[in-house]
Amino acid sequence: MDIFERKPVNHAIHTSPSNDLRLVESAIPDIQPHECLIHVRATGICGSDVHFWKHGHIGDMVVTGDNGLGHESAGVVLKVGADVTKFKPGDRVALECGIPCSKPTCYFCRTGQYNACPDVVFFSTPPHHGTLRRYHAHPEAWLHHLPDNLSFEEGSLLEPLTVALAGIDRSGLRLADPIVICGAGPIGLVTLLAANAAGAEPIVITDLDEGRLAKAKELVPRVRPVKAALGEDAKGFAGRIVSELGQEAKLVMECTGVEASIHAGIYSARFGGSVFVIGVGKDMLTFPFMHLSSREIDLRFQYRYHDIYPKSISVAAAGLVDLKPLVSHRFQLEDGIKAFETASNPASKAIKVQIVDE
């Protein structure tokens, strides 16, 4: 029986400027000659999806109309366009969801920094619908073959792994570099896995939640967890971090975007060290400027990624990073609203919530 006969409705999860969340029925898309029609089999809920739902914007990216969510996805090719050469129906794929313009007149695309393309189509970022739907049309150039030894859930988790690897790549992390990871949420935990695979030593990870710190210890037994306390002085907290690390950090990977956490990370860094902020925070934050200046600490930021997906697939397929333990909850596509409620509720103790469609 044809899949469209079994599942004729293209369900999707949408939000709007009213900050609502809905399961909608959308049309099965027609594909262009350069596109493949994908049956999306697994999609992870990202913090940005929750942020667009709850707050309606991230920086200058504003929900102004009906907007589909989701950008951490993997699935199966159902149909291919006339110009497609790399894929055929039945191929298992991971979806890279930032589609740059690729025009020769675009400086950023021409120089390989396609994550900075001003005309990028990033699925789930307004006004572009996301991939949290049953059927999705995707350009061939931004699909990646998913190895047989990786599940669809692992394929969807390649996206946050790619974010972490992009930061690790740009940070210049070397074997036995001391590192602090601020935040043990999904990105923090994936960053921990990546730093562990890269040979960072020692590693400290921080969080307010003891359960997430326990998860970090389960994933990487040699990590040194430090529990944060609400309202604690940043310098005092940094002192506890440095004491547990045994030295000041060469590299701090800040995965929360919370101002107090960024401050603690800065105060934990050594002279000439680096603080990489991956987390998404408020539009305006303050930083200890003179401390950064007088200690030559580089404060850097990570915006998405470029040319990292193949590397993520390689390290996951080789077993250098095991993504499976990150999944804490699973829901069917039709239960997507429950999935979002779980992902956004601290009481659920969710790490990574997956929405699957068989």
Rank of each mutant, 00 (worst) to 15 (best):
A229P: 00
L158D: 02
R134P: 02
S261G: 09
A94I: 02
K352S: 04
S348Q: 14
A198Y: 00
A350M: 10
C255K: 03
I181P: 01
T206I: 08
I99V: 13
A316L: 02
L213R: 02
R224V: 09
L78G: 10
S293T: 14
R6L: 15
A269E: 06
E25Y: 00
R240H: 12
I337H: 08
V84Y: 01
T111S: 14
A343M: 11
I313S: 04
V121E: 09
R212A: 00
F340A: 00
I45P: 04
K215R: 12
I45C: 07
K324P: 03
A94Y: 00
A198F: 06
E96S: 14
N19E: 00
G112W: 06
E334I: 15
K215V: 11
A164T: 03
A184F: 03
S48F: 09
H129P: 04
A269L: 11
L157V: 06
H136G: 00
G75A: 11
S293C: 14
S151G: 14
L251R: 05
V121C: 09
H291G: 02
T256F: 04
Y305H: 12
R134G: 03
E259F: 10
I3K: 10
G155Q: 05
R170W: 10
F108A: 12
G281N: 09
I297Q: 04
T162S: 13
G273P: 06
L175G: 00
V190M: 05
C46V: 09
L292Q: 08
S26M: 12
S294H: 10
D169T: 12
V76T: 15
L95V: 08
